[in-house]
Amino acid sequence: MNWVLNNLALIGERTLDHLAIAVPAIILSFVLSVPIGWVANRYRASNGVLLWLSGSLLAVSGLLYAIPSLPLFLALPAIIGTGLRDPINVVIGLTLYGIALMVRATADALASVDPNVEQSATAMGFSGWSRFWKVELPLAGPVLLAGIRVVSVSTVSLTTVGAVLGIESLGLLFTDGLQRNIPGEIYAGIVLTILIAVVLDGILVLCGRLLMPWRHAAAPKQQAPTELVVNA
């Protein structure tokens, strides 16, 4: 515990570094997954090429998660031409993992909207575009929220892997604590990682309450849990 008390400034700095990587990755995963998930869901019931497109979008995005994180973080700079220890590599890698979870969640969320409601909306004169924004997306909200919460937790945890490349995050407390055999430092890293995950989760729930105030009056129908992953 002494170590923790003597290094509060360092711990605070690492926590901020951690947030600066995890938060953009979570937001990017969400923003990118909605259109991809929409395409995957839209053509799920069709056939031929479009069905194939939908199926492969889901299968392929899911498999992104099978890529071990360490080699991915190392290979990305070679592919996209960034510096090896540019935090943007980790942000992109984490975004890919987030997409892997979030595309299926989005497709499932959109599928959970009652087709009768969609037809009613069309009948009331909504165009395809405004129907998506004003009817489908809000109704899919709760399942989308469930998905982004999983993405958030696993992204916060995976951010630590970047430490192996010297990218500053709470993960550096593990590598340094292990070398110096200071368990307090490792535990501090673990506890803060969980704490960040819990706080971000709370913020997401709060956003959900603010954006979907109707949820508590009449809970909408929902899909099963999305795949949940933390791989490293």
């Binding site: 990017l28 990305l76 992109i92």
Partner: peptide
Amino acid sequence: RLAWSAVAVGAVVALAGCASGDPL
């Protein structure tokens, strides 16, 4: 999968580009 990864990476890069000037 690879082709798809490439597309995804491209999209992310484009988006990240918009948000440049960040503390990263």
